[in-house]
Design a protein around this nucleic acid. Structure first.
Lengths: 104, 104
DNA sequence: TAAACATATCGAATAAAATCAATATGAGGT
DNA sequence: ACCTCATATTGATTTTATTCGATATGTTTA
């Protein structure tokens, strides 16, 4: 039983919260600094910072620090990995040794 | 501000829990009934039922009731929709009207 | 119809996540 | 050096999710 499930779940945590999806959709038009995101998303500054951390930790978003500002953008490699993983998780390999139920 | 974000988040809820990923990986070898899943996943019966509901609600898994048993399988269309959505959410449309930061 | 079984639902307990106010950090400007 | 601004962190609170025991529902079998 190989268990990278916990790690994989972390990647999809990025997408399973309303606020984070809002942030992602804002980042689709390109890199944004936190202050811009803060204006658009209806949460306080510490809450945004918390969500950005989850997004960055998932690998889907990357952060670039420039002076006072932190610029966030969608990571091409990170989102590619997420897509790849989603593919892996939902592919069905219907093999011959199929046991549908306990009594079949 | 178009908000299907809440609905979209629901789809990815399927993938952001360790137990549900375990279930999904079991379903990759084909349709399984709840009793089989219950043997493999280390949770109680009501807990499994709860997770299956979240998976079915997300559309990624479909349920087929046959007598006493409920057979679960990965939904081709549901997972296709999830993939499509993931694609939509992570695509960057770098347009010309780019505002990177508040002071730029 | 009664018993046995598979799964779902309910209610309560516990765990985890989200949120905010207050404060810390660290960079620039004066 | 001091002040200001942008973001991060901390600690507490509220909300949401997970889990389990008990029970309900609905199906098959005797």
């Amino acid at each position: 039983m190989p268990n990278n499930h916990k790690e994989n779940a972390k990647i999809f945590k990025a997408f399973c919260d309303e606020t984070r999806l809002m942030v992602l959709s804002l980042l689709q038009s390109g890199e944004k600094c936190a202050c811009v995101l803060l204006e658009q998303v209806n949460v306080g500054q510490p809450t945004l910072s918390h969500h950005m951390r989850i997004l960055v930790d998932s690998g889907v978003v990357s952060a670039r620090k420039q002076g006072k500002w932190t610029h966030y953008s969608i990571s091409k490699s990170g989102s590619a990995k997420a897509k790849e993983l989603l593919d892996l998780l939902t592919t069905v390999n219907e093999s011959e040794n199929e046991i549908g139920c306990c009594n079949e």
